[in-house]
Design a binder for these strands. Structure first.
Length: 262
DNA sequence: GCCGAATGCCCAA
DNA sequence: TGGGCCTTCGGCG
C-alpha cells in the first residue's frame, strides 16, 4: 500500500528497532548482496522518509535507499506469518529482523545519492520542510491537467493514485482541469487536504479518506468503504456511476456529478 | 496453471 | 506513449 504515508509510517515504526544499533545487513535473495556488504555491521543513525522514498542512514555516511514501487513490502519478524517471499534485504539487530521484498529500488550510496533523489522531488506534505508555497507555485506554472500534476513527484512528493482522486473529489475539481487554471485558494486547500489525508494515513497505516461530514446524513456506510470514488463503481456521496480518465498514464477515478467538467 | 490487475516509475522510441 | 520490471492474489479455465 505504498503512497507517501507508508514510508513515513515505516520510518516511525522501524526507528526503535534499528536506529542507534549496529545492523547486520544481508540479502538472502542475492540481488542486494554487494551493496549490503557496504553497510553490514554499521550503526544506523537515522531513518528518513521523503515522499515515497526511504533512506536508512548509517554512521559511515552511506545510506540505503529504498523505493517500494507498487509491490514492495517490509516485514518485522515475530508475528509468525508465512514467508514474505524473496527477501531482497534483511536487517538484523539485537531487537529483531526486518525483511524487505519486492522493492523497485534498493541500493546503497553516499550522501550525494540521497541528495540527487531528493532534488527531483517536490515538497512532501508530511515533512516539516515541505513548503506549501513551492507546491502551489509548481501547480500554478504547469500546463498539465491537475489530475496529472498531482501524480508528478516533482510537484508534490508522496501523492499516489488514491490520494489524487480523493483530494480532487473533496474539492469538486474535475481531474482534467488545468492546474494553472485553479485559483490559488483552491490549490492551497488541495495542499491542506492532502496533508490531512496523508497524516491520517500515517496514523491508520492505511488509506481512509472518507469524511462523514461530506456525506448526506442518511448515506449508509458499508464495512470496507474507505474512499469516495477511488476504485468504486458509484460515488459514495451521490451514487452516480464513477468514471475514469487516463492521466499521467493511469486511471483517475472521479464522479461526473460532484466534479464539474471544465 | 494462466492472466490481469494493483496505492509506481524508468526508459526507449 | 508503451513496455518492462518488482510481486502477490483473485478469477477464470
Amino acid at each position: 500500500m505504498p503512497e507517501g504515508h507508508t514510508t513515513h509510517r515505516l520510518a516511525r515504526d522501524l526507528t526503535p528497532l534499528l536506529v542507534g544499533r549496529a545492523v547486520a545487513v544481508s540479502s538472502p535473495q542475492g540481488r542486494f548482496a554487494a551493496d549490503a556488504a557496504l553497510v553490514d555491521g554499521q550503526p544506523m543513525v537515522a531513518i528518513e522518509a521523503y515522499g515515497k522514498h526511504l533512506f536508512f542512514h548509517f554512521a559511515s555516511g552511506l545510506s540505503t535507499h529504498v523505493h517500494l514501487g507498487l509491490f514492495g513490502k517490509f516485514r518485522v519478524d515475530g508475528d509468525g506469518l508465512p514467508p514474505l517471499g524473496e527477501v531482497r534485504m534483511r536487517m538484523r539487530t539485537d531487537l529483531g529482523v526486518v525483511d524487505l521484498a519486492g522493492p523497485t529500488a534498493c541500493e546503497v550510496g553516499p550522501g550525494e545519492l540521497r541528495d540527487s533523489i531528493v532534488a527531483r522531488l517536490g515538497p512532501d506534505p508530511l515533512r516539516r520542510d515541505g513548503r506549501r508555497a513551492d507546491a502551489i507555485a509548481a501547480l500554478g506554472s504547469t500546463r498539465q491537467p491537475i489530475g496529472g500534476a498531482l501524480l508528478d513527484q516533482r510537484v508534490i512528493a508522496g501523492v499516489g493514485n488514491v490520494f489524487r482522486a480523493e483530494v480532487l473529489f473533496v474539492h469538486g475539481i474535475h481531474p482534467t482541469v488545468r492546474a494553472a487554471d485553479c485559483d490559488e485558494p483552491v490549490l492551497t486547500a488541495v495542499w491542506e487536504t492532502l496533508r490531512k489525508m496523508l497524516r491520517a494515513g500515517v496514523r491508520d497505516n492505511r488509506i481512509i479518506t472518507i469524511d462523514r461530514r461530506l456525506l448526506p446524513r442518511d448515506r449508509p456506510l458499508r464495512r470496507g468503504d474507505s474512499t469516495f470514488v477511488y476504485k468504486r463503481d458509484v460515488c459514495l456521496r451521490c451514487g452516480t456511476a464513477v468514471q475514469t480518465v487516463k492521466l499521467a498514464g493511469r486511471p483517475c477515478y472521479f464522479c461526473p456529478a460532484c466534479q464539474a467538467a471544465p
